[in-house]
Amino acid sequence: MEQKEFQLNDVVEMKKSHPCGANRWKIIRMGMDFRIKCEGCGHSVMIPRKEFTRKVKKILERQGD
Rank of each mutant, 00 (worst) to 15 (best):
residue 3 Q to F: 12
residue 59 I to M: 07
residue 13 E to N: 00
residue 22 A to R: 04
residue 31 G to R: 14
residue 26 K to M: 13
residue 31 G to F: 11
residue 4 K to S: 04
residue 50 K to Q: 14
residue 2 E to K: 10
residue 24 R to A: 02
residue 1 M to V: 09
residue 60 L to T: 01
residue 20 C to V: 08
residue 54 R to E: 10
residue 36 I to K: 09
residue 12 V to K: 03
residue 49 R to S: 15
residue 36 I to S: 02
residue 11 V to E: 01
residue 46 M to S: 08
residue 56 V to P: 01
residue 5 E to T: 12
residue 48 P to E: 12
residue 25 W to C: 01
residue 46 M to L: 11
residue 2 E to H: 07
residue 28 I to W: 14
residue 9 N to T: 01
residue 6 F to S: 03
residue 52 F to M: 05
residue 46 M to D: 08
residue 26 K to H: 11
residue 39 E to Q: 12
residue 31 G to S: 12
residue 7 Q to F: 09
residue 7 Q to G: 07
residue 7 Q to R: 10
residue 3 Q to D: 06
residue 31 G to K: 15
residue 22 A to M: 06
residue 47 I to A: 05
residue 17 S to Y: 06
residue 25 W to Y: 14
residue 1 M to Y: 11
residue 54 R to T: 02
residue 14 M to A: 02
residue 53 T to P: 03
residue 10 D to Y: 05
residue 13 E to G: 00
residue 60 L to Y: 02
residue 58 K to G: 00
residue 3 Q to N: 13
residue 60 L to C: 02
residue 20 C to T: 09
residue 27 I to H: 13
residue 54 R to K: 15
residue 19 P to N: 11
residue 10 D to T: 03
residue 55 K to S: 08
residue 10 D to V: 03
residue 6 F to E: 04
residue 13 E to W: 02
residue 6 F to Q: 06
residue 50 K to W: 12
residue 24 R to C: 03
residue 55 K to R: 15
residue 31 G to I: 13
residue 39 E to G: 02
